[in-house]
C-alpha cells in the first residue's frame, strides 16, 4: 500500500471515528464540510489537474441540487432515484458546456463558464413559478430518506456525507494515479507536448469537465437532500468562486487539499464570526497572508517542505 493510500484511508478512518466522538456542533459542521469538500474535489479535477480555471461551477452544483429537488418536489421521486438524477443532470449540463467552452482556453474559458453559469442562475429566477426563484423551496423531511434511513438525523447525515466523501476521495486518488490523470497533468504542464505525444487533448479535457461537473452536481444533490433546502443562491457567482478558494487555500493539485481548504475556510469564517463582527476582514487578511506565506496552499506547503510524495 502506498503512503498516499494510507493517508487517504487514514483520513477516512479518522472522520469515521469522529462521527462518534465529536460534540454535536462540530459533528454538524464536519458533515457540511465533507459535502462542500466533494464540491471542491470536483473543482480540483478540472483546475488542479487539467489546469482549466472555471468560474462557473455553481451551475453544476445547482444542476445537481435542482435535478434532485425538482423531481422530489413535483414527482415525489425517492432519493435513491433523485440523487443519481441530479448528478446526471449536472453531467449532461457539463457535457453541453464543455463542448462549447472548450473551444476557448485561459481567461476566455473563465469568462465563458462564468457567463453560462450566470445564465443558469437567471434561468432559475425566470422559471419562478416552478423553482420559487431566489427563495427556493424546502425538501420535506419525509422525502429525505435513503435506503430506509432518515437523512435528517444527525448521525445518518454525517455517515451519508462520509460515504460520498470517501467514494469521491478514493476515486480522485485512483484518477490521479491513472493514465487519464497523468495525461491531464501533462496537458496542464504543456498542452502542445501532450498533443505531439499523440494524446487527444480535447477528448481528455472534455472528460475532465464532465467528471468535474458530475462530482460538483453530486455534491449539490447531496447538499439539498442532507440539509433540506434548495435555493438560487447556490447558483450565484460567489458560489462559483468558493471552490476555487477552497482549492487554492488547501493546495491545488493535491487530493487531500480541497478537504483541508474547505475545513480551513469554514472554521476561519466561523471562529472569526464568534470573535468579531468583522469576520470578512479576518478572512480577507488570512487569504492575503496565505498567498504570501503558503504560496501553493496549505497542502502544497506540506508537499514542498515535508512530503514530496503527496499526490
Amino acid at each position: 500500500m502506498s503512503r498516499a493510500l494510507v493517508l487517504h484511508l487514514g483520513l477516512i478512518a479518522v472522520l469515521f471515528a469522529a462521527a462518534f466522538l465529536l460534540p454535536a456542533y462540530h459533528h454538524g459542521n464536519l458533515a457540511r464540510i465533507m459535502v462542500l469538500a466533494v464540491y471542491a474535489m470536483g473543482y480540483n479535477i478540472l483546475f488542479g489537474y487539467a489546469g482549466l480555471l472555471s468560474l462557473g461551477h455553481a451551475m453544476f452544483f445547482a444542476a445537481g441540487m435542482y435535478g434532485m429537488g425538482l423531481t422530489v418536489r413535483y414527482w415525489d421521486w425517492p432519493m435513491i432515484l433523485a440523487l443519481p438524477f441530479g448528478t446526471l443532470a449536472a453531467a449532461a449540463l457539463a457535457l453541453l458546456v464543455a463542448v462549447l467552452a472548450l473551444r476557448t482556453a485561459g481567461v476566455a474559458f473563465m469568462i465563458v463558464t462564468l457567463m453560462f453559469s450566470q445564465a443558469g442562475f437567471l434561468v432559475i429566477l425566470y422559471f419562478n413559478p416552478i423553482t420559487r426563484g431566489d427563495e427556493g423551496f424546502v425538501i420535506p423531511q419525509a422525502a429525505r430518506r435513503l435506503a430506509g434511513l432518515d437523512l435528517s438525523d444527525p448521525m445518518n447525515r454525517y455517515l451519508a456525507a462520509l460515504v460520498l466523501f470517501s467514494v469521491v476521495l478514493l476515486a480522485c486518488h485512483r484518477l490521479v494515479l491513472s493514465r487519464l490523470g497523468r495525461v491531464l497533468v501533462a496537458i496542464r504542464e504543456n498542452e502542445e507536448r501532450a498533443r505531439l505525444l499523440g494524446y487527444d487533448v480535447w477528448a481528455h479535457k472534455l472528460g475532465a469537465v464532465v467528471l468535474s461537473g458530475s462530482v460538483a452536481g453530486a455534491a449539490g444533490a447531496a447538499y439539498g437532500a442532507l440539509f433540506g433546502s434548495v435555493g438560487a443562491s447556490f447558483a450565484e457567482v460567489p458560489f462559483s468562486i468558493l471552490p476555487l478558494l477552497y482549492v487554492l487555500a488547501g493546495g491545488a493539485g493535491t487530493v487531500i487539499g480541497p478537504f483541508v481548504g474547505t475545513a480551513f475556510m469554514f472554521y476561519l469564517r466561523d471562529l472569526a464570526g464568534t470573535v468579531t463582527d468583522a469576520h470578512m476582514l479576518v478572512a480577507g487578511a488570512a487569504l492575503i497572508a496565505l498567498t504570501l506565506f503558503a504560496r501553493r496552499g496549505l497542502m502544497g506547503l506540506v508537499r514542498a517542505r515535508w512530503a514530496g510524495w503527496l499526490p
Binding site: L248, A278, M280, L281, G284, L290, T291, R295
Partner: peptide, 21 residues
C-alpha cells in the same frame, strides 16, 4: 507575489473582503 496570476487572484479576493468590510 511576483505578480503570479493564481496567487494574485486569491490575494485580490482577500482584498475584496477587506475593502468591503
Amino acid at each position: 507575489l511576483g505578480h503570479d496570476p493564481e496567487r494574485t487572484i486569491v490575494a485580490t479576493i482577500g482584498l475584496l473582503y477587506v475593502i468591503q468590510q
